[in-house]
């Protein structure tokens, strides 16, 4: 039996679902744009940034938070597309997927590829609008960022998939907002550089440095300037592997939490 038709079909289905949910696309764009155009404008005056790699000149705060906001798009999408599985309506389609005679790791990977590509399309839409407001990056950076965005999308999608298999009931999205998305986003280098964080609290700095989202953001940040941050790549790969393994474990029919939802 051929494996490739399932991959293309799953990716195409994610894309179609996305096209049908225009409000989701708008929300995904408005969210980082509000941060960029409102929050960052206000913060620019308050926060001075010294020159640290990958930046070679003094940069504005808006420029600093662009990679973090790319990460935010991936974070929200990764959680949203995977956690929609928790709802019953989506559980039906998951059942359909899992009764296909293909290895589960392949089916889950196909789902991750699909949701990551959708997220990346949104990231580029965001970057385009940011550019229209004058916040531009080196041209090659837009290309170099693609693999970084893909890996970060995988990492966050795998986390969402793992969570969707362990969380029995989810009344709404708020629980995940409060306990996963907000801590991951705020305790990272998305909004403030780690050295700045260290000035106020060593503990906060250490938490941020251990947060996989920080490394995903740094990977994207360096890639946007055509550079490879090896340490960030290593940590992001490690986290992707761990989250992926947790997702596979969660959807294993012998041990998984599917059992709690007959």
């Amino acid at each position: 039996m051929k494996w490739s038709p399932a991959l293309f079909a799953i990716v195409a289905r994610e894309a179609l679902r996305f096209v049908h949910q225009r409000e989701r696309f708008v929300a995904a764009l408005v969210r980082p744009l509000v941060w960029l155009l409102v929050f960052a404008a206000g913060f620019r005056a308050a926060l001075g940034l010294s020159i640290t790699p990958p930046y070679q000149t003094y940069i504005t705060y808006e420029t600093y938070i662009v990679p973090g906001l790319c990460g935010m798009v991936l974070l929200f999408n990764g959680m949203q597309s995977s956690l929609s599985l928790v709802y019953d309506r989506e559980m039906g389609s998951m059942r359909l997927l899992l009764t296909s005679p293909l290895p589960r790791w392949w089916l889950l990977t196909a789902k991750l590829i699909g949701s990551s590509l959708i997220s990346i399309a949104q990231v580029y839409a965001f970057l385009l609008i940011a550019a229209a407001f004058g916040i531009t990056l080196p041209p090659m950076g837009y290309v170099a960022a693609f693999p970084a965005l893909l890996l970060a999308g995988f990492m966050l999608g795998a986390l969402g998939l793992a969570l969707s298999s362990f969380i029995k009931q989810l009344e709404n999205f708020a629980g995940i907002m409060n306990f996963v998305i907000f801590p991951m986003f705020f305790l990272s280098s998305a909004l403030y550089p780690l050295w700045k964080m260290a000035e106020s609290s060593r503990l906060l700095h250490d938490i941020c440095a251990a947060n996989p989202f920080t490394h995903a953001v740094e990977l994207i940040r360096f890639a946007l300037y055509g550079e490879l941050n090896l340490a960030a790549l290593g940590w992001t790969l490690l986290a992707t592997t761990l989250f992926g393994a947790a997702a596979l474990w969660g959807y294993d029919p012998a041990r998984g939490m599917m059992q709690s939802r007959k």
Binding site: M1, K2, W3, P5, F8, A9, I10, L16, P101, L102
Partner: peptide, 13 residues
């Protein structure tokens, strides 16, 4: 489209 999706999950296209 629904049927095509399912067919693909079974390796058919």
């Amino acid at each position: 489209q629904n049927l095509k999706y399912f067919a693909a999950l079974h390796g058919l296209r």
